[in-house]
Design a binder for these strands. Structure first.
Lengths: 222, 222
DNA sequence: TCACGATGGATTGTATACGATCAGTGATGA
DNA sequence: TCATCACTGATCGTATACAATCCATCGTGA
């Protein structure tokens, strides 16, 4: 008989995670165990486990006897998540800098060039996808799996609580591309690791600040 | 009827976490759902959820159809966990430095003085407890709850995978006390945050290095 | 009209039951 | 003697059932 290679609870987890990452599950959305179980054609028990795992990662909040809701786009939460990611990703990028293969640096440069080109005919979604990939290349060689894990969780969490900074602050894209090149130059020139770390951290903090400034000046003022 | 304020799965989680933190559950120990359920006087379902959460935090490993085992004292794992904690705790300490009340700094100084006194009649367990408390004072005012959470998880994880560095490298205690004072001086003098961050990070990395050096020179050589 | 309490549906929390899977043990045959 | 295989006990994975709890709605009385 065809036995599933992975458990149902695992599949439920993957399922929900993907929905969160791709935005089908908008913040504030309520996760009802029974419904999810129906969609996955299983009972609620595996779904419960999956939801618990998501809770442990801070992607959803859970209230006893009430259920889970997708974490909302709270500005404060956004701030904290971005700040945390700036610290972790900065460290990960620095740790990876010394051992990243030249081929991958080249790939990152190429990607950034594509991002620069796309500025002319700007599509936030597309740009965001390339941006995510760009940073993934840089930090993915981090030799510390624990840090790597935290970075990836950070990105997932970020993606789950907001669409994308570039949707709301398109002008940030220009600065971002320039900072990417600067970062690559630092890595290429074997700059001290703390310099690379600071650059990577500041890059993220700059994005955060761009977002916060935009929040203070609502669109109505434009 | 007396209704439990918290769910059983929550209680199971707390129960296991405490056992891990206080070392009743030694690395390599096998967690059998049924046994734990018996101890807690409940069915296995809540226990499963708790174990899943522990797995999501990396405190136990889980194998399908086999069960959970407490993460072992792998030197490499230890290295990665400490390195991660150095990054996160450094950031947390720096972020907290600007807003920590004078009373708490005084409490930290007092605690460190007690640690210095205890060096004469050294008890690793007692020293470790004070050390944990000392650092908790410094980082607990970190305004970013997300980072704070990661620091605390890091400590729990560290405690769960090894007894204490000071058990194995007692001489590190002397340096540690001195570094604590230096760190407090930096905070007191309102040093730049990145200086404080670096000091806190190095403090932890020094402990890590002390541990690693001792590993390379097994006790038999003493 | 408004405040307040009862009621019912929806949802979660947990126990129990049973099939699936794994690891160890002893028997069998070369 | 040794490799192989069937068997068994332990444990996990999941479905189902039911109790506990919450939330919204409606009715009642002032």
């Amino acid at each position: 008989m065809a036995v599933p290679a992975v458990s149902k609870s695992e599949r439920a987890y993957e399922f929900l995670l993907q929905q969160l990452a791709e935005g089908s599950l908008t913040p504030g959305h309520r996760l009802v165990l029974g419904r999810v179980a129906e969609q996955l054609n299983c009972s609620v028990v595996p779904v419960r486990e999956a939801v618990r795992r998501l809770e442990a990662e801070g992607l959803v909040t859970f209230q006893r006897n009430v259920g889970a809701t997708v974490q909302g786009v709270d500005t404060e939460l956004m701030l904290h998540t971005m700040e945390t990611l700036s610290v972790i990703e900065g460290a990960a990028t620095a740790l990876a800098a010394g051992i990243i293969p030249a081929a991958d640096i080249a790939a990152a440069r190429k990607l950034n060039a594509a991002m620069r080109c796309s500025l002319a005919d700007f599509s936030p979604v597309e740009f965001t996808a390339m941006n995510t990939q760009f940073h993934a290349i840089l930090y993915s060689h981090c030799p510390n799996p624990h840090i790597l894990d935290l970075v990836q969780r950070g990105w997932v969490r970020l993606n789950s609580i907001r669409s994308s900074t570039f949707v709301q602050v398109p002008q940030r894209a220009h600065e971002s591309v320039a900072e990417h090149d600067a970062l690559l130059d630092l890595i290429d020139s074997k700059a001290p690791l703390h310099t690379i770390e600071r650059a990577a951290r500041n890059h993220r903090l700059n994005t955060l600040n761009a977002y916060l400034n935009q929040q203070q000046q609502p669109p109505s003022l434009l």
